[in-house]
Amino acid sequence: RTGFTAIKANIQARDTVRTTSILSFPYSLHRVNSEDTCCIIHHLLKFYVDMVFKHCETEDSWVNRKISSIANSFLSIKKNFRHCHQQSLCRCGEEATQKYKQILTNYSQLNVKNAAMKSLGELDILLDWMEKAY
């Protein structure tokens, strides 16, 4: 969280499309059912590692260092979550699957660089929800 707070204004300023959201359209993560939480977090960790961080290189080395430290944190959380998924403690219901598909659709509406930067700028949305959910 601290790493993101330090670069939040910088990253969000690069996202000039105010009227669409990757994570919050058509409805907020806060409306996800509690039993779907684990599945969505598992998917979103993978989404950020595979489809976001690697496309977020900037011209600012300090910002890049912050991004890679956030990415490393995600990698370690993702490892822990893989353990839950393997133990099938992380049930993926229909709604969770639909919500994740919608996120991928929202992402695909923009070119990769813009979609990745917008997703990174929405990290506080994800963290707010994860911190409340757990």
Binding site: R18, T19, T20, S21, S24, F25
Partner: peptide
């Protein structure tokens, strides 16, 4: 003002 992610 604008709610982020809404189009107006």
């Amino acid at each position: 003002y604008l709610v982020y992610g809404e189009n107006k």
